[in-house]
């Protein structure tokens, strides 16, 4: 990968433009292998009660070294502003950094963000010094509001979490990219490598996924596929694609023909 093509968000510098979640894997060993194969240097984690009855259980962070990876705690599973704020504070108290991936979910069936709640929670957390990366809808107006209140990046979804539907509204994503001048991380809904490549070709700054890798028949192989997809998409975006045209344009010269 191009060592100079770094992504910087609020002073944090990232090598990788593929970010991965750590849920749904068979075990921690598989999680670790998949993350390594993906080349990601940002991994999301959730905050939950520690198992106090069975202390023999291993800890995720024994497998994922916080010195090697940026650990990005999320507020996954929070459906209210109060819960999301509480979990964000707990994540910070558990002590990695001020970074939080903020989720305020709207309903259990779609897991779509409750964007009104998201903005409210983001305001509270930003005031407390958090670096809020909000998981939001593919809505340019909401994205702009989130940036206006101080989010240093926005994370619009491609499709519902875990759906694997790919980018359902590429035009909205493009409008978001033109509307806000902060990094855009396409989060959730990617199904396979071409979805990730497409997101990057559109101009996303990074892609975050979990289920597309963890739920694949061969997660470690899919992690590697995603690494190359994100890389290829990024290169293609920077290279600048040709415009689409209805009719052919010959690519061999006429000159010299018999």
């Amino acid at each position: 990968m191009d060592a100079n093509d770094r992504l910087t968000i609020a002073g944090h510098e990232f090598r990788s433009r593929l970010w991965v979640g750590t849920g749904k894997y068979k075990d921690f060993a598989e999680t670790k292998k998949a993350i390594e194969a993906s080349g990601a240097d940002v991994v999301t984690v959730a905050v939950r009660r520690v198992n106090i009855t069975d202390r023999s259980k291993e800890n995720l962070l024994d497998y994922i070294d916080p010195k090697k990876y940026t650990i990005l705690p999320n507020t996954a599973g929070c459906y209210t502003v109060e819960d999301a704020v509480r979990y964000a504070r707990l994540a910070r108290a558990a002590g990695i950094s001020d970074l939080v991936k903020l989720e305020v979910l709207g309903d259990e069936k779609t897991l779509f963000p409750d964007t009104a709640g998201l903005i409210e929670a983001a305001k509270i957390l930003i005031k407390e010094g958090f670096i809020v990366l909000p998981y939001t809808n593919d809505d340019p107006i909401v994205a702009k509001k989130l940036v206006d209140i101080g989010c240093p990046a926005v994370m619009p979804l491609a499709a519902p979490i875990g759906s694997g539907l790919g980018i359902r509204n590429p035009y909205n994503l493009k409008i978001i990219m033109e509307t806000v001048k902060v990094p855009i991380i396409v989060d959730a809904g990617v199904g396979t490598a071409s979805d990730a490549a497409l997101a990057m070709e559109y101009g996303a700054d990074a892609v975050l996924m979990n289920t597309a890798i963890a739920g694949a028949q061969h997660p470690i192989a899919m992690a590697e596929a995603m690494k190359y997809a994100v890389y290829a998409g990024r290169l293609a975006y920077k290279a600048g694609r040709i415009p689409r045209k209805l009719y052919a344009t010959a690519s061999s010269p006429i000159e010299g023909m018999l």
């Binding site: 749904k24 999301t44 996954a76 289920t211």
Partner: peptide, 14 residues
């Protein structure tokens, strides 16, 4: 509380 594996929407996932 501590950190566990998670991506998005861990609870009440469809």
């Amino acid at each position: 509380l501590g950190f566990i594996g998670g991506g998005c929407g861990t609870k009440g996932e469809s």
